[in-house]
Design a protein around this nucleic acid. Sequence first.
DNA 1: AACATTGTTGCACAATTAGCAACAGGAGGT
DNA 2: ACCTCCTGTTGCTAATTGTGCAACAATGTT
Lengths: 252, 252
Amino acid sequence: MTIQSIQRAAAVLRSFSEIRPELGVTELAAIHDVHKSTISRILTTLEAEGMVSQNSETGKYRLGIGLVGLAGVALGRISVRGAAQPIMSQLVHDIQETSILMVRDGREAVTVEWFGSTQALRYVGWIGRRVPLFCTAGGRILLAWEPFEKQVALMPFLPQKYTESTVIDPQALQKLLAEVKETQIAVVREEFEEGFSSLGAPVRDRHGRVTAALTIAIPSVRLTAENFPTLQAELRLAAQNISAELGYGFGG
Amino acid sequence: MTIQSIQRAAAVLRSFSEIRPELGVTELAAIHDVHKSTISRILTTLEAEGMVSQNSETGKYRLGIGLVGLAGVALGRISVRGAAQPIMSQLVHDIQETSILMVRDGREAVTVEWFGSTQALRYVGWIGRRVPLFCTAGGRILLAWEPFEKQVALMPFLPQKYTESTVIDPQALQKLLAEVKETQIAVVREEFEEGFSSLGAPVRDRHGRVTAALTIAIPSVRLTAENFPTLQAELRLAAQNISAELGYGFGG
DNA sequence: AACATTGTTGCACAATTAGCAACAGGAGGT
DNA sequence: ACCTCCTGTTGCTAATTGTGCAACAATGTT
């Protein structure tokens, strides 16, 4: 028994994205198959609550600053962040590449912490960035230890290709996930973003469950056969150290 | 014309805080003077939307990871962040103290970016942290250039004292805000958190409006008469540089 | 075992919401 | 300047949905 108008409000909020950060009443009404007067009222209410704001020039709406404060409270309960921060900071200092910590949110992975490389050419992340599970290293780490039935249940939701390299064939993906589980490392080369590749390693909680993914995001030109062994070793070690901090008895 | 049930949902979300990250149905019902069955249904709906999650052991609720992704989109539209990041990183590198960028959210200031000092004793911030306007350096920066009537209109909402040093007398505060406006620097010594002080400087947009506050948060033992001139000068310069990036013609 | 407390659920009713229709304002074209 | 089109907003009312009552299920304490 859920409350329909609250569901509608949440659906409206989720309509905004990195790609479509600003939307109009008429657009949202079409997306949700709801009358525009209804959308207008939902947005008016959400604006009063600081969760959206209206661009006075365009009349269109965006997500509002009030969500940031709510997310701050939500982030505060994610204990892996505290454990990971010093370790990630050191990792980035050592390898001079960007490191990102992700957890699962529905059918996506979301960034809950990140430290950026200081090199001029580097990957820039942000807290709250959502990326697909299937074609990112962090996403594959979060999927690889899921029960097979759960992995299969997600296959109908495979997204479009993001790049020429994106793997979207279910069987090929299953194979990749099995390899991730075996090697404990995920490697994604330009499947999600042209020019960038990523490595991922599992972070486990005290029960041994993979609850987060520690990743390195790197301009592809800098991921070579020469430095790959070092990078993946450093990443593994950092992920193991974070897991140990969380109470995982991992060869500690 | 706002939608009451959506307002209620938002009010429930805002009930969670740093201090009270986990709340039960009965507590929330009392806080909001709403029947607990109503609260239970609101929470069930919000949980289905990923905006809260229930602790299976305690039966209580917390804010959920879905809010982080929404906040990520909201953060993406705050252009001051991109301008500020390299400058803040350099500032922290130079002074070895934590720097925080805040914008206003209603009657509070919220952190939209931060870079932490690597010293062992340091201030740790986080994206989405909300702090009172009145007794933090960033908050005072955000208030100081507000029209007098707007400042006065906020006085009834003065919070309780956080520390022995918190200034909550309206007239004393008005005087402090006038000084901030004159000196272009806010200094708060342990008014919000024991052991920590902060300095704030205004960040202006291309229209000249103060739309963000750049701050340094520092263990009070490290803020001395000796280093204060250097710290405030570095902070001013960094804030001016960010403002210039935003198109403010500030003695460029 | 009995009791207290918490979160959940079925039911019915009336309060609130959703959709229709009209409106206000702005942009673009002639 | 006038007209058309499009967008977001608002008054009104019917009916749908949300709310509160009452009961329930589960857990913890004495």
